[in-house]
């Protein structure tokens, strides 16, 4: 058991090292710059509003763009790095050297998977740091705007209404920027990326090229966002449909993961409360789905002729 874990760890570490060398980090750097720059951009675009609406909109924009970028770049990294895992090993013939040693195919596959998960964790952590920096910057801009708007009247401290307004505006900026629920949002985004990795890994166990894996995973990702609609439709009206329609919608409902449930992150970003119990339920679902994906991947890869 321990030796098996050790072999998985070694393969995972090597996978991470190889992936890091693929200039993924330079993409991250570009992302960080775009993210930080977006808050300046919005300050210029969203002019003409009153101060309180302006900073609220700006903070929302930075949050949406930050998490959107983490999702988008994370998806690209997960997809591209997973899709070439097995084909590259086959092309370089390194897989034969590894499997000639006392390494099981399942260990090889799990090592590869955890290597990519580590890479994603690293990328998401770096992107989250840039995101936090952008939010902090936006907070400072918001506080400066409130200072400029609320304190321009002479002796404003003597006017209880203005003092109340000022404290209220400052409290709302802190509430929006230092929202602990953002950790929940990042965690859910990360899990969505890990699920994408699991799907890509499954496809790559029987695919003959990276392009096939990328395109198929991308399609499953998109269909996954419509799975909830298909499921509702199938459960409510499945009996009324033709056998072909019912078969197709049923196939989507029974096998494709519900990616749309992760859009609950939008609620968090809009400032609405999403309890941790719900996030944990969603994470539990994603983990269970991953176990199934890995089990199916291992079975297919075990029987694959290399």
């Amino acid at each position: 058991m321990m030796t098996s874990l050790y072999r998985i760890t070694v393969i995972g570490r090597n996978t991470l090292t190889e992936a890091v060398r693929q200039k993924v980090l330079s993409v991250l750097l570009i992302f960080a710059l775009v993210l930080v720059g977006s808050s300046v951009l919005v300050s210029e675009i969203a002019g003409g509003l009153d101060a309180s609406s302006l900073f609220e909109q700006q903070i929302k924009f930075v949050k949406d763009f930050g998490c959107g970028a983490i999702g988008l770049f994370g998806f690209a990294i997960a997809l591209l790095s997973t899709a070439q895992l097995i084909p590259q090993e086959l092309h370089n013939r390194t897989i034969y050297t590894i499997l000639a040693k006392p390494v099981r195919r399942s260990e090889f596959l799990l090592g590869k998977f955890f290597g990519i998960v580590l890479l994603l964790a690293l990328c998401v952590a770096l992107m989250s740091l840039a995101f936090a920096a952008a939010l902090y910057w936006q907070e400072q801009l918001g506080l400066a705007a409130v200072d400029a708007a609320d304190t321009q009247i002479p002796n404003w401290q003597q006017n209880p209404t203005l003092v109340s307004q000022y404290h209220n505006d400052v409290a709302q900026i802190y509430q929006q920027v230092r929202d602990p629920q953002l950790i929940e949002a990042i965690l859910l985004l990360f899990m969505k990326l890990v699920m994408t990795t699991g799907i890509a890994l499954l496809i790559s166990t029987f695919a003959s090229s990276s392009i096939f894996t990328i395109v198929t995973t991308f399609m499953i990702y998109l269909i996954g966002h419509m799975e909830s609609t298909a499921r509702e439709f199938w459960l409510a009206r499945g009996a009324e449909m033709s056998i072909w329609q019912s078969g197709l919608v049923g196939f989507i409902s029974l096998l494709i993961p519900d990616m749309n449930s992760f859009t609950i992150v939008d609620e968090i970003l809009a400032g609405n409360h999403v309890p941790w119990s719900h996030a944990l339920n969603l994470l539990g679902y994603a983990n269970a789905y991953l176990i199934v994906l890995l089990a199916v991947s291992i079975i297919i890869f075990d029987y694959r002729e290399l």
Partner: peptide, 16 residues
């Protein structure tokens, strides 16, 4: 559904 995941970013861009 297709916009999901990027829905909020699309909405922000349309708005600003």
């Amino acid at each position: 559904g297709v916009l999901s995941g990027m829905r909020n970013v699309v909405a922000d861009l349309i708005f600003v």
